[in-house]
Design a protein around this nucleic acid. Structure first.
Length: 667
DNA sequence: GACCGTGGCTTTTTT
DNA sequence: AGCCACGGTC
């Protein structure tokens, strides 16, 4: 197996005496080092599989890593080997240590939407609804948690009133989560980190369990994650991290590429290995990638080289507008495929924002070309899926007030905002959840008779279903629950268009199918565990289980990280899009890295496209080609459809300029 | 409580 | 342009 590795890769795999940092350029075999290292550790019995934990940042990456390790270790028992995302590792720790964290079994994971609605609720209670604060506060709380800070720690350190308000909400927010028996995404990292730093005994238990830790995409770690890594390692040596500071694109969610420097400071015996040979891209592609990223400042000098041939020139395609851009790209793919007969999965269309996929989806659909869409409005953000998920969460954790409020009057039970206002006040006063509040003996003194009957019917009903769930056949109980509430009929009433109602119902069936499959796969897991699992996953994770491997890949640049494709189309290469308008001028370096990530996904060919006009919020705008295109060496590029502007394009551009002027004048 | 129309907001990236 | 929340009407 080691014959397939170069010298640096081999030494990275065999080095286990001290902590190891692998600085690996794009396409230099980063994941290969981790997977081969795991295989080496297991095969040569350096460690038991159960003592090895490997961590990635996305579900996709972790699934891929699992598959590759399985392949290398075919026939060998890997029981207990843990490969997961950072957040799933956190969940694993929290599940085992829940009693030390003030959580009970059946706890719920709040996603951003849940988080936002809880913050909104708190703001409404305290400030009568200053809605302009909620985004700021959510961002602030998340930032604090990413730095592993608690509300108590930040409340006395706020520099202005706005921050102080956020800190106060933070305190209440965390108290609420504990009452609701819930944690949020950020807690999955910060709670274990905080627990380990205050409880040595628990920590040492986990150090026994995790004796070798491997981290992929290390440049994306935030402060809390680094703290967790450091605590788990202690003064031991079992750590391999692999990263590339040129591919750090998660600064906005707290990633600290400086954590690479911290390793050098914190571990004096750290070994550093650089991987500089690229095995992925044609030399032309690699060259423009190097040229672009050279415009960013660098701490670690890295020179990526490759022995693959030059390949074709890089194409730059101009187009009139987003639809025209999509037509051009799709027709290129069709022609290319006609000549080469490659599978559709060899092609990828990469863009900055999810909304950019729409025109491409339309054109691909028109041509009946199969495509696979990553990201976008997540399955679990859909209202109907949220409804049913809320019901399911309530079954395993009735104290989850956010779920309670979501479903109490959906479908209508005559328990409207008025009654809920009273119930919330009552429950807050008692310091209990809404559900428990309904069972307080004197609730009748605080709410109307009708509301009390409705609530007690509802709670009894939830209890009866949840009893059936815990007795065994959870799927049957769930289906009956959905039948009880007549959800299908509710959808029909909500959406007069039968097609829409039907498609929403299909989403519910898909959710149930998925649950059923999970249930069959992991019989020993409780419904609560399955739900936690699902919250951390995405529908993509089941799509890819299906066979649509012969499909064009559509995804954001962020989602493309860690992947590679033979033929890559980077679309929307325009100012305000890449670099994104909100990143100008402060985060240009990260935007440049994002472009770098996109370019280095390509193996054989790379095509950039940009449009002369684009609609934003229905308004026509003139667009300029991205500055990043200007930074590329012209001799490597082949420009088409942009030098000589056609009459039609001129007209279109003129229209856009007029529209711009008009909007300026009317402002 | 159901059904409609208007108006406001959206689009940065993910666990 | 499209989605959703809100308010008015029945």
């Amino acid at each position: 197996m080691s014959s397939q590795l170069n010298e640096e890769q081999r030494s990275a795999i065999h080095h286990i005496d001290t902590p190891l940092l692998v600085l690996a350029g794009a396409g230099s075999g980063k994941t290969r080092v981790i997977t081969y290292k795991i295989a080496h550790l297991v095969k040569n019995r350096v460690l038991l599989p159960e003592h090895i934990t490997a961590v990635t940042f996305t579900n996709k990456a972790s699934r891929e890593m699992k598959q590759r390790v399985d392949k290398l270790l075919r026939g060998i028992d890997t029981k207990g080997l843990h490969i997961s995302t950072f957040h799933t590792l956190g969940l694993r720790i929290i599940r085992r240590e829940k009693s030390r964290l003030g959580l009970r079994s059946g706890f719920t994971i709040y996603d951003q939407q849940d988080t936002l609605s809880l913050i909104r609720e708190l703001l409404r209670k305290d400030f009568g609804g200053k809605t302009d604060l909620e985004d700021y506060i959510r961002w602030k709380i998340s930032g604090w948690k990413n730095s592993s800070l608690t509300a108590e720690q930040v409340i006395n350190n706020s520099t202005d009133t706005k921050e102080y308000t956020a800190a106060q909400i933070f305190l209440k927010y965390d108290q609420c989560l504990r009452t609701y028996n819930a944690v949020d995404f950020d807690d999955l990292i910060s709670l274990p980190a905080q627990l380990f730093s205050r409880d040595e005994q628990t920590l040492s238990g986990w150090q026994q369990r995790i004796r070798y830790l491997l981290i992929d995409e290390y440049q994306d770690t935030n402060t809390a994650q680094y703290q967790l890594i450091k605590l788990l390692l202690g003064d031991r040596k079992g750590l391999t991290v692999v990263g590339d500071d040129d591919q750090s694109v998660y600064g906005w969610r707290g990633a600290q590429p400086e954590n690479i420097d911290l390793l050098l400071e914190d571990f004096p015996d750290l070994r550093v290995i650089k991987l500089e040979q690229n095995y992925r891209s044609a030399t032309n592609i690699l060259h423009i990638a190097n040229t672009l990223i050279a415009n960013n400042p660098h701490k670690f000098e890295k020179r990526l080289w490759s022995s693959i041939d030059r390949g074709e020139k890089i194409r730059v395609l101009g187009s009139r507008n987003a639809d025209h851009e999509a037509q051009k790209v799709v027709s290129r793919i069709l022609h290319h495929r006609f000549r080469t007969n490659l599978p559709y999965s060899d092609y990828a269309i990469l863009y900055r924002g999810n909304h950019q996929s729409r025109p491409f989806e339309r054109v691909l659909m028109e041509h009946q070309i199969p495509y696979k869409l990553s990201g976008g409005t997540s399955f679990f953000e859909r209202g109907e899926v949220k409804d049913i998920m809320a019901y399911l969460n309530l079954l395993v954790n009735p104290d989850n007030d956010t779920a309670f409020l979501r479903v109490i009057n959906t479908p209508r039970r005559g328990l409207g905002p008025g009654a809920m206002e009273k119930l919330t006040g009552f429950a807050t006063e008692r310091g209990v959840s809404l559900f428990s509040g309904c069972y307080e003996s004197d609730i009748r003194d605080h709410l109307g008779k009708k509301a009390c009957i409705g609530l007690s019917n509802f709670c009894d009903w939830i209890n009866s279903i949840s009893e059936r769930v815990s007795r065994g056949d959870s799927m049957a109980a769930i289906r009956e629950m959905i039948n009880d509430i007549q959800y299908r009929q509710w959808l029909d009433r909500q959406y007069p268009d039968p097609n829409i109602a039907e498609s929403r119902w299909r989403n519910i069936e898909e959710l149930l199918d998925w649950l059923e499959r999970l249930d069959r796969k992991n019989r020993q897991n409780s419904l609560a565990q399955q739900l936690n699992h699902i919250t951390l996953m995405d529908i993509l994770d089941r799509q890819t289980e299906d066979d649509n491997s012969n499909a064009v890949n559509l995804m954001t640049l962020h989602a493309a990280k860690g992947l590679e494709f033979n033929h890559v189309y980077m679309v929307g290469m325009e100012e305000e899009l890449l670099p994104h308008r909100n990143s100008i001028p402060d985060s240009l370096e990260e935007e440049r890295r994002l472009a770098y990530v996109g370019i280095t996904r390509a193996r054989k060919s790379l095509t950039f496209t940009h449009a002369a006009t684009r609609r934003r919020y229905g308004e026509l705008l003139a667009c300029e080609p991205s500055r990043f295109l200007e930074e590329l060496p012209n001799d490597y590029l082949e420009r088409e459809g942009e030098q000589q502007e056609s009459a039609e394009e001129k007209k279109e551009r003129g229209n856009a300029h007029l529209a711009n002027l008009r909007s300026i004048l009317t402002e």
